[in-house]
């Protein structure tokens, strides 16, 4: 059995004496669509920020492809092949969709600031390749006709889609999704779920999905990890998780 792509071990972090994460561990396999759920304050966002390098946990380890990620700067983690989206869409509102997506190719390009002024030789080849990739991703996500639109003028649902496209343009080995359907209506949520599922199966992108929307998570995830008060209380397939006593008690209550 090959080692997991992503391994979280014994992750612990406290804020002002409150344990936000308490010995959390799980692994994600290559190609998996893995979800983390939990009620408000369960530690989902804290976990997310630890993985993307914004917070530094007190103990534990986060390994990606066998390499320790803890202590790396956020942009290094991104360069290592981990892309992310933000809970409250963080796109670049003044840019066009195309610029926004091209930006995600930044780490794959090599030409320096002066060379990139002159479109010639390697710099020109790089730019052409980047543009091809951007067009391909935009088409896949149904943004093909919007490439020249200014991101800030697009509706919220589309902006979320732009953000997803941007992270895919990075060609990540792992995609972190922070509540990708937050603030979306029913229809948009369904569309986004379908898109994520499609991206996962067609492109083989491994995903770590942190989400609040239960039905959406249960519909598309391969495995679900449930957090409560910073501790992992369940880790199983969606079908098994919804039947788990601890989960029903702690989080789902009588909702299902």
């Amino acid at each position: 059995m090959s080692a997991a792509l992503f391994e979280v071990e014994d992750l612990t972090l406290s804020f002002a004496g409150v344990r936000a994460l308490d010995g959390v561990d799980f692994t994600i396999d290559e190609g998996e669509l893995f979800a983390v759920i939990g009620p408000n304050g369960a530690g989902k966002s804290t976990l997310f920020n630890c993985i993307s390098g914004i917070y530094r946990p007190e103990s534990g380890s986060i390994k990606f492809g066998g390499r320790q990620l803890l202590g790396s700067a956020p942009h290094r983690i991104a360069s290592a092949g981990i892309a992310r989206t933000f809970q409250n869409v963080d796109v670049f509102p003044a840019m066009t969709v195309e610029e926004c997506l091209l930006l995600a190719r930044h780490q794959h390009l090599r030409s320096g600031p002066v060379a990139s002024m002159v479109r010639w030789g390697r710099s020109a080849r790089e730019e052409r390749a980047a543009l091809r990739k951007v067009t391909e991703v935009a088409d896949r996500l149904g943004l093909g006709g919007l490439l020249q639109s200014t991101v800030g003028t697009l509706p919220h649902g589309i902006q979320k889609r732009v953000e997803l496209a941007r992270s895919l343009c990075m060609e990540p080995r792992l995609l972190l999704l922070d509540e990708p359907v937050a603030g979306m209506n029913h229809e948009e949520t369904a569309e986004m779920a379908a898109t994520l599922s499609e991206v996962n199966s067609d492109l083989g992108v491994t995903m770590l999905l942190v989400e609040h929307d239960m039905s959406m998570v249960m519909g598309i995830s391969h495995r679900v990890c449930v957090l409560d008060f910073g501790r992992r209380i369940a880790l199983d397939t969606p079908a098994n998780v919804v039947r788990d006593e601890a989960v029903i008690d702690a989080y789902l209550g009588g909702a299902l």
């Binding site: 003044a94 091209l102 995600a104 030409s111 320096g112």
Partner: peptide, 25 residues
């Protein structure tokens, strides 16, 4: 029109999002 210019605009717009694109702020 250049990626470094774009990266600079991205940093000006949101440092967190820029970092997530692998941009060394």
């Amino acid at each position: 029109r250049t990626r470094h210019g774009l990266a600079l605009r991205a940093t000006a717009s949101s440092q967190e999002a820029a970092l997530a694109q692998g941009i060394d702020v």
